[in-house]
Amino acid sequence: MDKKLSKEELVDLIDSLNPKIKKSLKNTNYQDRNDLEQEIKLKIIESYEKIAAIEAPNFEEFLAQFLTKQK
């Protein structure tokens, strides 16, 4: 399995985040909600590069980080 997100997975991810998006629509007037929904999805797709650049530590790195922080 590839660590980085593929573009297909990004679309799946947007689908799975749909309830969250719907909830955030309440932040605006109901006349603007469809616009907002579209813009959010666009924004997520635009931020693909940024998402792909997120770095995560592996198990050992995380453990080592945690242990050094505790000392």
């Binding site: 907002l36 959010i40 931020s47 998402i51 997120i54």
Partner: peptide, 22 residues
Amino acid sequence: YYRAKVYKYMCSLIYFFSVDFD
């Protein structure tokens, strides 16, 4: 961990973007 970070990132993105948009 990567997935968790992405989710977190997206959730804040959605929230703050909607506030900004309004």
